[in-house]
């Protein structure tokens, strides 16, 4: 009986260790250190019959993110050193600093939790202080926010590796059961000098 119990305990421990290792490996698989990817986004609201669709591309460089929506309207955000900068249309709102340098970006005052979400969605960087992580399947991780402000907006984040190489699917479920599905396809693993230049906000 004691033998049986100890074997059972050993099996449980092995399973626990395997799950932990598996979760860690999955987290590593989601990470994008540097590269370019395209995305399509579909937002379903409970109060709308048709989903809101958009598409664009994003670039990751040294933990910084450029998120560019191309359709149906153009917009660009840069997340640099935990600060969000919004691109301003050069034709009508270009502003110059006191030194005369054209400044195409305006710093947005947002909350850290939004940056956490964007970082997690687009780079797969999962901060375990901010997310509770569970393995859903071989390809999928479930994340629940620990941060209160984020938890007020998001109830669940599902990250899945796609069938194709470099493909990922993200499903965000908010507290009102509205969902946002984002499909990401990594097209490049490194950035050109031109791409890197885009991370220069001035």
């Amino acid at each position: 009986m004691t033998k049986l119990l100890s074997r059972l305990l050993a099996c449980c421990l092995a399973l626990l260790v395997f799950t932990q290792v598996n979760a860690k490996e999955l987290i590593d698989d989601f990470k994008i250190e540097e590269g370019v990817a395209t995305f399509t986004q579909e937002k379903k609201f409970s109060f709308l019959s048709t989903p809101i669709k958009s598409s664009g591309l994003f670039k990751v460089y040294k933990h910084n993110i450029l998120w560019q929506v191309n359709s149906p309207v153009f917009s660009k955000l840069l997340i640099i050193d935990n600060e969000i900068w919004q691109f301003i249309e050069p034709n009508n709102s270009e502003v110059k600093t006191k030194d005369g340098i054209a400044n195409h970006y305006r710093k947005m005052v947002t909350h850290a939790s939004i940056e956490t979400l964007i970082q997690t969605v687009f780079t797969g960087t999962i901060n375990e202080e901010q997310w509770d992580t569970t393995v859903k399947s071989e390809q999928c991780l479930l994340l629940q926010p620990k941060d209160t402000l984020l938890a007020q907006a998001i109830s669940l984040l599902e990250l899945c590796l796609g069938e194709e190489e470099g493909e990922r699917e993200v499903l965000i479920t908010d507290t009102q059961k509205n969902t946002t599905k984002i499909v990401l396809t990594q097209t490049k693993n490194s950035l050109s000098d031109e791409d890197i230049n885009e991370f220069n906000i001035h």
Binding site: S54, V73, S75, S113, A153, I172, D174, Q176
Partner: peptide, 22 residues
Amino acid sequence: IFKIEFELINQIGEQLVAQTIE
């Protein structure tokens, strides 16, 4: 006007639109 509205509704993780559109 449409751009402002679309950016708001398309924003990741924001609940404002859902809570105020009514």
